[in-house]
Design a protein around this nucleic acid. Structure first.
Ligand SMILES: [Mn+2]
Ligand SMILES: [Mn+2]
Ligand SMILES: [Zn+2]
Ligand SMILES: [Zn+2]
Lengths: 148, 148
DNA sequence: TCCTCAATTGAAAATGATTTTCATTACCAA
DNA sequence: TTGGTAATGAAAATCATTTTCAATTGAGGA
């Protein structure tokens, strides 16, 4: 469920083209476990494809989020950060954010319990508010070991 | 646990002054159940105190967050939104965000179950990563009844 | 009550992330 | 190979937030 072939198919299916910038961005995000910002992605892709513009980075990231291939996060440092959507490479997980240094830890313990709770909540909410839940985000804030 | 007296005391305790702008912002946020942006707060306070500047709004919001009186949220509409911290007026709760119209619903069902899970998670995380958790945020994204 | 002075404020300018515009380029179906 | 359209990049525009700095003000002590 990754690689140029699958991507091409996925793009075609939505009526989009698989271009070099798009491929390069997907490749980069497939290889890292970090939560990269647009500018960080720009710097990295620029090394292998110097013609790329920051505008294209932003546009591509929007597109990939809209296609469900990426997730967009705000960890409070003034810029959006992105990672491959769950199921594509990593499992569903949540984040610990160090409020001192900004370090982000992926965390996936208690996923079973969590999914159970989330299911309950979703059921109750759809009844109570007629609200159809598509996704959720859970973040913990605190102090990492280095910053203590 | 609110009103000018308590606020004054709280400010003095931190070595700050209780000024009119600060009081006006606190009063506004005490009266609303909405999640207001800096500009919305500015507009509202401006009506009763036209001399106020947007800069002061931002500075005051930062201060109040830092003092623990407010919580700051990012619901993905490009600006920060604020509400009184839990315990001051409302109970601990989380948010449903409509990804179509931006509507935000406060939700506090299953708080007991949730707190239990959070406690478990916090314990495990502090052991596993030596990470000291101070706070958490949970948000659900979906489609509200009107937007269906 | 009056003084003093650091804390606070507001206007204007600066910053920085993201978006828009528009002319050019490059996929890809035919 | 080619035509038409989607995609791109540079530059300018937007817009929330922050910084700068001179003027104002709250509150403890005289
Ligand atoms: Mn992650
Ligand atoms: Mn709320
Ligand atoms: Zn840290
Ligand atoms: Zn809606």
């Amino acid at each position: 469920m990754s690689g140029p072939h699958w991507w091409r198919h996925r793009f075609r299916g939505c009526g989009y083209r698989l271009t070099f910038p798009r491929q390069a961005i997907l490749e980069l995000l497939s290889k890292t476990s970090k939560h990269l910002s647009a500018k960080e992605i720009y710097s990295a892709v620029h090394k292998i494809y110097p013609a790329i513009g920051l505008t294209t980075i932003y546009r591509t990231l929007d597109l990939l989020v809209q296609m469900g291939l990426l997730k967009k996060f705000d960890f409070g440092d003034g810029q959006s950060r992105y990672e491959l959507a769950s199921g594509i490479k990593k499992n569903h997980h949540h984040h610990l954010v160090c409020v001192k240094c900004g370090k982000i830890i992926d965390y996936d313990d208690f996923v079973k319990e969590e999914i159970e709770l989330v299911k309950k909540v979703e059921e109750a909410l759809s009844k109570k508010y007629n609200f159809e839940i598509k996704d959720h985000k859970i973040q913990f804030y605190g102090i990492c070991s280095k910053c203590k």
